[in-house]
Design a protein around this nucleic acid. Structure first.
Lengths: 344, 344
DNA sequence: GTGAAAGCGCTAACAC
DNA sequence: GTGTTAGCGCTTTCAC
């Protein structure tokens, strides 16, 4: 036997196919008894609506695309990020019987834009979620916009009123971390900045300054060193900072990879963490719990952000309108072993 | 303007829609000049076939499902695995204009089977790739089989002739690693076994024994300790092994997490790696290059395996038959800092 | 080599 | 509340 169709269900239930369609789509105006009959027939025949037919007839797909940067190295720390975003997006999709299409793409390559466009044109998703740093690249955003597909940007730098963005409060969370370090008695709190491309990372420096001010500490250029988000840049920055006289008693890095670099350098120099030096990161990547001592950091609500984005897209597709503005999902401090009271 | 349809293309090219269809699907029996006309019209109108309509008419979808274990912790080391499999599968899919649907599922939950079945029934993919350890679970495999969807198992333990499997040569690679350690002068080479559930891991123990034999070393139960694939079980096993008199000079763990546990314990005990102890793992997870010293390990060709699986599924869908047997993609040794000559 | 006609299984618009 | 009808944009079948 082939698969049951809506016609089979209608015949078994003794109603028209339109009524079956109503039940399946939870449309109003169906008598309870009728609905029960239809549901019984559906169960009996193990009927599943054919998505292709639905999509064709309704001119919309139940697909959500997730576009993110494709790490060229196969197992960059970004794996954890990607998995978390996928997880969040998937949970929203599954609940709504939508499917997730993943679209990793390498923005360093020339053909990304063309590839992305044709990917979208071929699959015609109901909506697209664009993750950082792609979500901050005008070319990428422009390409998606040109296809007319609704999209949501994740963790964007600038807030654009034309479409929806889901962001996290990097700045406030960084300020909170800084205040936390200050509350432990640290007065020389250093900061390692991240890659300038990643806009959200710039907000972390601002948050650091906010936190200092809120704690009554003065900002000093001497305590800020530039990194580029990589482990090795964290090592270099740590070497520089720990050579200062007096050295900082706490180092807050704009991401976990750099913080891990700081830990490595401190270990080599025989500096005890957290007794002589407190170290904090940002992102809560897997590594944060694998280093020794485990890293105090800030947890980005990536899964929740992606979930919200998917939900918004699905809602918009259903209600045939589009959400605007920026939705903020707060990040939370994860206090572990790498931070402690300032040395006396 | 709406999107161009096949009818528009036919009108512009001055042919019937069937001819356009032939060109789009690369069917034979089209005169070259006709094909050129059609292609010109397609380019002019920026025509893209509607997948839903195609799928509906042809009773097949251009979707490949990738089913894998959903790590309950959001950023388990398995992230790297998953990303690599996705990457491989995606590259095959993109080349064939197929899409990848990801289906993480937690086999520890009761409803997995039902959920998996309905997922497949709703999306009706052209084929499914099942990753280990799910690919070794009869219930999971049975559920997929019952939907009638073609599938390929990744890295399976037992080889089943009824469908296609893509495996790696765990056993041979483990033997190779063991021989490599022996060639460095090690004679007391210990092995930490993995979780018994993961069948491929059992092959690693066999490979270890093969390697010993091939190197003229005798197997000793004293040098084999059971682990369960976790970091902490690696720590426990290392503590036990290093307490033996005499202790082993090399420890080969059935996976990288356990090997990382060994490194941690050696570090605590003040044992120098690799001068006093060589450590080797299996899998080449991201952590392998983040630990100090970096870990010598075996790289599973996960991306290639997933790519082969997707290719087979796509080929089978096109040619309307099904591949059988087991395709083997060899694993390769990654020699890093954690192994060296045996102490004198 | 090419085309006409008949659906695929559903939703949308409107009638009842 | 419920049913009828007409497509959606393609592939398939078969005729020419």
């Amino acid at each position: 036997m082939g698969r049951a169709t809506i016609t089979d269900v209608a015949r078994v239930a003794g109603v028209s196919i339109k009524t079956v369609s109503r039940v399946v789509n939870h449309e109003p105006n169906v008598r309870e008894s009728t609905q029960a009959k239809v549901e019984k027939a559906i169960a009996e025949l193990n009927y599943r609506p054919d998505q292709s037919a639905r999509n064709l007839a309704s001119h919309r797909s139940r697909l959500i695309g997730l576009v993110y940067d494709d790490p060229s190295a196969y197992d960059l720390p970004s794996s954890g990020y990607i998995i978390r975003m996928q997880k969040g997006a998937l949970s929203a999709c599954r609940a709504a019987h939508y499917e997730l299409l993943i679209h990793p793409c390498d923005y360093r390559k020339k053909q990304v834009i063309a590839q992305l466009k044709s990917l979208i044109e071929e699959t015609r998703p109901a909506g697209i979620i664009v993750a950082a740093p792609l979500s901050n690249m005008p070319k990428v955003v422009g390409a998606i916009e040109s296809t007319g597909t609704p999209f949501v940007r994740l963790s964007p730098g600038k807030r654009n009123g034309k479409q929806l963005s889901v962001a996290t409060n990097d700045r406030e969370a960084s300020a909170e971390m800084t205040r936390y370090l200050a509350s432990l008695g640290h007065t020389r709190i250093a900061f390692i900045t991240g890659h300038p491309r990643h806009k959200a990372v710039g907000n972390r420096l601002r948050g650091y300054r906010d936190g200092l001010q809120q704690s009554g500490l003065t900002f000093s250029e001497q305590l800020v060193v530039a990194g580029d988000n990589s482990f090795s840049s964290g090592e270099a920055a740590a070497a520089e900072l720990l050579g200062r006289k007096p050295p900082p008693t706490a180092i807050f890095a704009a991401n976990d990879d750099m913080a891990a670099g700081v830990i490595r350098v401190a270990d080599r120099l025989g500096i005890d963490i957290p007794r002589q030096l407190s170290v904090a990161g940002f992102d809560d990547i897997a590594l944060a719990r694998q280093v020794y001592p485990t890293l105090t950091t800030i947890r980005q609500p990536l899964a929740t952000m992606a979930e919200r984005a998917a939900l918004a897209l699905i809602r918009d597709a259903r209600e045939d309108h589009s959400s605007k503005g920026t939705e903020v999902v707060p990040a939370t401090l994860q206090i572990r072993e790498s931070t402690g009271p300032a040395p006396v």
